[in-house]
Deep mutational scan, measured.
Amino acid sequence: KKYKIKVYVKDKKTKKWKKIKEIEVDTKEEALEAIKKLPPNYEVKIVP
């Protein structure tokens, strides 16, 4: 079972969220580790 991490950042001009990358991992633990490495201003969604 794979997890997709969708990473969004808020556009300063439009104030809208835009997706900047998608990370695919195998476990939820890996997903949480990957999220920890991202800057705090990123919004993250984990999709099972």
Rank of each mutant, 00 (worst) to 15 (best):
Y8G: 01
K28P: 11
P39M: 04
Y8N: 00
E24V: 12
V9T: 10
I20Q: 03
P40K: 12
K13M: 08
T14G: 08
I5K: 01
T14D: 06
K37C: 05
K1C: 05
V9K: 15
P40I: 08
D11C: 05
I35L: 07
T27M: 02
N41T: 15
E29Q: 11
V44I: 12
D11F: 02
D26E: 12
I5R: 00
V9E: 11
P39D: 12
E30D: 10
V44Q: 01
K18C: 03
P40C: 05
D11W: 02
P48K: 13
Y8V: 01
E33S: 09
I23H: 04
K45A: 09
K10G: 03
K16L: 09
I35P: 00
K15Y: 03
K2V: 10
E24Q: 14
I20A: 04
K6G: 07
E22P: 00
P48M: 15
K10W: 06
P40Y: 07
V47S: 08
V47L: 08
I46Y: 05
K12H: 14
V44A: 15
I46M: 09
I23T: 04
K28H: 15
K37P: 03
K28T: 10
K18Y: 07
K21L: 10
K2A: 09
K28S: 07
A31V: 12
K45D: 04
P39E: 05
E22G: 01
E29N: 08
T14M: 07
K2E: 05
K16Y: 05
K16C: 13
K6R: 07
K6L: 15
E43G: 15
K10T: 05
Y42E: 04
A31E: 02
N41P: 04
K2S: 10
K4P: 00
D11N: 15
V47N: 05
K45M: 10
E30S: 05
K4M: 14
P39L: 07
K4A: 07
Y8S: 01
L32W: 10
E43F: 13
Y42N: 06
Y42V: 13
K13E: 13
Y3L: 06
Y42D: 02
V44G: 11
L38Y: 13
V25I: 07
K4C: 13
D26V: 10
K12T: 09
D11V: 08
I23S: 02
I46E: 01
T27S: 12
Y8D: 00
K19C: 09
K36T: 13
P39V: 03
V47E: 11
Y42I: 05
K4V: 15
V25N: 00
V47K: 04
K45P: 01
P48A: 11
I35G: 02
D11I: 05
P40E: 08
I35H: 02
V25Y: 14
K21M: 15
K13W: 12
K15E: 10
Y42W: 12
E24T: 14
L38C: 04
K2T: 12
I23E: 03
W17I: 03
K18L: 06
K1E: 10
T27W: 02
K28Q: 14
A31Y: 07
W17K: 04
K37F: 07
Y3H: 03
K1Q: 11
A34P: 00
K4N: 08
A31D: 00
K19A: 04
K37R: 15
W17P: 02
Y42S: 10
Y8C: 04
V7S: 01
D11R: 04
V47C: 06
E22T: 15
K18W: 08
V44D: 00
E33F: 03
A34S: 06
I20Y: 08
W17A: 02
P40N: 10
E43I: 12
I23K: 02
N41W: 10
P40A: 11
K12A: 07
V44K: 02
K45L: 11
D11G: 05
I5A: 01
K37T: 11
E33N: 10
I23N: 01
A34D: 02
K19F: 11
Y42L: 08
K2F: 11
E22D: 07
V25Q: 01
K28M: 15
K45Q: 08
I23Y: 12
E24P: 07
T27G: 06
K13R: 15
K12Y: 12
P48C: 10
E33K: 09
L38Q: 03
T14E: 04
E22Y: 03
T27Y: 03
K16V: 05
K1N: 14
K19H: 05
I35E: 02
K28L: 14
I46T: 03
V7N: 00
K10N: 04
T14A: 07
I5Y: 08
K10L: 08
V44T: 08
E29D: 15
K4W: 05
K19L: 12
D26P: 04
K6W: 10
E30I: 04
D11P: 02
K12V: 13
K28D: 07
L38I: 08
Y3G: 00
K21S: 14
Y42Q: 08
P39G: 09
T14Y: 05
A31H: 01
Y3S: 01
V47Y: 15
E29K: 11
E43T: 15
E29V: 07
K4Q: 07
Y8T: 00
D26R: 06
A34I: 15
E33A: 11
P40T: 10
Y8P: 00
K13A: 14
K36Y: 05
E30M: 08
K45V: 09
V47F: 10
A31Q: 02
K1W: 11
K10Y: 11
K36S: 13
K21C: 07
Y3F: 15
K16H: 06
E30H: 06
K4F: 09
K37D: 13
I20L: 13
P39I: 04
D26A: 11
K19M: 12
A34Y: 15
K37I: 09
K1R: 14
L32T: 09
W17S: 02
K18R: 12
T14P: 02
V44L: 05
P48F: 14
A31R: 01
I46Q: 01
I46C: 11
D26C: 10
K28N: 09
K6C: 07
K21V: 08
K36E: 09
K19P: 04
K13G: 11
K13N: 11
L32A: 13
A31C: 15
E43Y: 15
K16R: 12
V9L: 11
T27C: 02
W17Q: 02
K37E: 10
K15D: 11
T14V: 03
K18E: 05
P40D: 09
I35M: 08
D26F: 09
T14N: 08
V7M: 05
T27I: 02
P40W: 06
I46A: 01
I46H: 02
E29S: 10
D26W: 11
V7G: 00
I35Q: 03
P40L: 07
P48D: 13
K4E: 03
I5F: 08
K4R: 12
T27E: 03
L32H: 12
K1Y: 15
E24I: 09
I20S: 02
E22S: 05
L32I: 15
P48S: 14
N41D: 15
K16I: 06
V25K: 03
K13C: 09
V44M: 06
L38S: 01
I46P: 02
K37Y: 06
E22M: 04
A34R: 09
L32F: 14
I23M: 13
T27D: 05
T14S: 07
L38E: 02
K13L: 12
I20G: 01
K19T: 05
L38N: 01
L32D: 11
E30R: 03
E29M: 13
K1V: 12
K45E: 07
E30C: 03
Y42H: 11
V9W: 07
I46L: 09
K16G: 04
E29P: 04
I5T: 00
P39H: 07
V44P: 03
I5V: 12
K15S: 13
E24H: 15
Y42P: 01
E33C: 04
E30V: 03
A34L: 12
V9S: 06
K21Q: 11
V25P: 00
A34V: 14
K18T: 07
N41G: 15
V47H: 10
K21G: 06
L38H: 02
Y8F: 06
W17N: 02
E29W: 12
D26L: 09
V9G: 06
L32R: 09
I23Q: 04
K28C: 09
K37H: 13
K18G: 03
K45Y: 07
T14H: 06
I20F: 08
K28G: 04
E30W: 01
E24D: 15
E30L: 08
E29L: 10
Y8E: 00
D26K: 09
K45F: 06
E43H: 15
I5H: 00
E33L: 09
V44E: 00
K37Q: 13
E43W: 14
W17G: 01
P39T: 05
L32G: 04
T27R: 02
K15G: 13
E24A: 12
D26Q: 08
P39C: 03
E22H: 03
N41L: 09
V25S: 03
L32C: 15
I20N: 01
E22K: 01
K1P: 12
K1G: 12
A31F: 05
V7C: 08
A34M: 14
K18I: 13
V47Q: 07
V7D: 00
V47G: 06
E43C: 13
K2D: 04
K12W: 08
E24C: 13
K10P: 05
Y3M: 07
K19W: 10
V25G: 01
N41M: 10
K10S: 03
K36M: 14
K2R: 12
K12C: 06
P39S: 09
T14C: 03
I46S: 01
I5D: 00
P48W: 06
V9Y: 08
P48Y: 15
V44H: 09
L32M: 12
L32N: 08
E33H: 08
I5Q: 00
Y42R: 13
L38A: 03
K19G: 02
K36W: 04
I23L: 12
K12S: 09
K21A: 09
K21F: 08
K21R: 12
K18V: 08
K37A: 08
P39Q: 04
L38V: 04
P39N: 11
K37V: 09
E29I: 10
K16D: 03
K28I: 09
Y42G: 03
A34E: 14
K36R: 12
D26T: 10
E22I: 06
K19N: 03
V44N: 03
